[in-house]
Write a protein that binds this DNA or RNA. Sequence first.
DNA 1: TCTAACGTTGACGTTAACGTTAATATGTAG
DNA 2: CTACATATTAACGTTAACGTCAACGTTAGA
Lengths: 157, 157
Amino acid sequence: MKTYKIDDVARETGLTKRTIRYYEEIGLMPTPERSEGGTRQYTREHIDHLLHVISARDVLGFSLQEIQDYIVYARELSGQRQLYPQIQEPEQKLAKLREMDETLDAQLRKLDEKAGKILAMKAELEQFRARVGAGIDLLEAKQQNHTKDIEMEETGK
Amino acid sequence: MKTYKIDDVARETGLTKRTIRYYEEIGLMPTPERSEGGTRQYTREHIDHLLHVISARDVLGFSLQEIQDYIVYARELSGQRQLYPQIQEPEQKLAKLREMDETLDAQLRKLDEKAGKILAMKAELEQFRARVGAGIDLLEAKQQNHTKDIEMEETGK
DNA sequence: TCTAACGTTGACGTTAACGTTAATATGTAG
DNA sequence: CTACATATTAACGTTAACGTCAACGTTAGA
């Protein structure tokens, strides 16, 4: 399997090397394998994972802690469970699934709320921009007239 | 005009008194009038202003600096210009308007980006939730079968 | 094999966004 | 007028999310 060094990952994700190590440190990313000498060897999955984290961080303004909750669920559901402890007891599993369902539902409601407010803010900003545009047109027209007068004065001399 | 003390504002906005003073300190809110003794006297506009700031902060995850840009423009455009210095020179005004236009454009692009990513994330979470739901159904069915023999009277439901 | 470029681990520094505390003045109910 | 809740400024403390630096080991190409 192809592996990547931390500099490659930094280039592909736009994160700094420090940030990548930090995310590993706080458990936001599964720890990669190491080479004989201790160099971290990332896989494509690590990169995808980070891109996911970045998206959640930037777009949602979630704290890294909140993102972690989300990430853990995503991992548990996408088959890469070997990275996190697996639950065997059916009753516990059911309880866990119900908990996840609730959390997902709450997050979805949050997202809907955010989407709605983003639309409202967009409308407001667009209105502002229309006014600014009108102001620019007005002043440009004035300047046109002004320079026209000057030209006439000059030619009249 | 009715005025509010800082504790009233804190109650209505959910912010702490410290945060309210901090927002004033960093220029996120127009400085309120003071009583003879120096007590801040807020108006309803201050409260509405703060609610706006909170919305931008919570929902969009903007930094307070980014919010400030937005707020300043909003103020300058909504007629309450006495709170901020007014530009008189037409050329400076035109330059300022062009700057505002650019900033607004940039913020609108950001908003579009966020909206897009929110939709993507929503789709993903919904997919997760569907899987979780399937898992719950499965386990519940198993449990049903298991308890069917024992709890005969409930099978009639 | 040598060396330059890159990687590693501490460990301390920084910035935003407030919290907390202290010392003091102000506003108000009785 | 007194007492007591609430206000003020000033200053230092805190936490998250990294930045930066030093000292040192690793990797890869000529």
